[in-house]
């Protein structure tokens, strides 16, 4: 009698078929497969459970798992669509798709708004704006006087808050970004357009044994 040894393909938790993700995102099937390789590398870097934890996200971004950064935290939280503290493969691909050059600008504008709406109130409030400016100054070790920070925040609020209700709503944000498109530059990663060319090392077998 013959005996076959079969290799069981084991995917990460929350794995979704590349064809399904490609249909919903700006990526092709082979790009989603390449992203799976990237996802596996990040999600097995510390906890080795096939899910990206915040420390693994920080390690990938900063080569330091303990480096806290307000904006990286916000991006992690927005990638974590299920709000369970980790990013699974589907969340990773869907969220990265926002940063694809072919993704509609409105989607990028909406994502950036949620990013800056630190307390998820539906508005970017003056205090949030000030908190973000202070975080950046702290990160970059730039020193601006309190008066100058207040002036910059006040001026920006005045500029964006067209109905003068003291906070920035999504319509005001959209209008402001349309006049200042450079504000969206962080929302596009040019190399996502052809991951398989830019990162040939990600292109491996689409059926990978996690063992």
């Amino acid at each position: 009698m013959g005996c076959w040894l079969s290799k069981q393909v084991k995917h990460t938790p929350g794995y979704e078929e590349p064809a399904v993700l490609a249909a919903e995102t700006a990526f092709t099937v082979s790009e989603v497969e390449a992203l799976y390789e990237l996802f596996r590398k990040i999600s097995y870097s510390i906890f080795k459970d096939g899910l990206i934890h915040k420390e693994e996200f920080q390690l990938a971004l900063f080569k330091n798992s303990k480096k806290n950064n307000l904006f990286a935290d916000r991006i992690f939280d927005l990638f974590d669509l299920k709000r369970n503290g980790v990013i699974d493969f589907g969340e990773f691909v869907r969220s990265l798709s926002v940063f694809h050059p072919n993704t509609a600008q409105d989607e990028k504008i909406a994502f950036a708004f949620r990013l800056y709406d630190l307390r998820s109130t539906g508005f970017i409030e003056r205090e949030e704006l000030k908190e973000m400016v202070l975080a950046l100054l702290n990160e970059s070790e730039l020193c601006l006087s309190d008066d100058l920070v207040e002036t910059i925040v006040d001026q920006t609020c005045k500029l964006v808050d067209s109905n003068s209700d003291g906070k920035i709503d999504p319509i005001e944000w959209k209008e402001f970004v349309r006049k200042n498109p450079s504000l969206l530059k962080n929302m596009t990663l040019p190399y996502l357009k052809d991951i398989t060319m830019a990162f040939p090392s990600f292109v491996m077998s689409s059926e990978v044994d996690d063992e």
Partner: peptide
């Protein structure tokens, strides 16, 4: 002063997702 707070914020290294790709190559 003609500084826009959002322009300042966008300078954060936290927005640079290229690290995700570089670190994993």
């Amino acid at each position: 002063i003609n500084l826009n707070a959002f322009d300042i914020i966008s300078l954060s290294s936290g927005f640079d997702l290229s690290g995700l790709f570089e670190a994993s190559e």
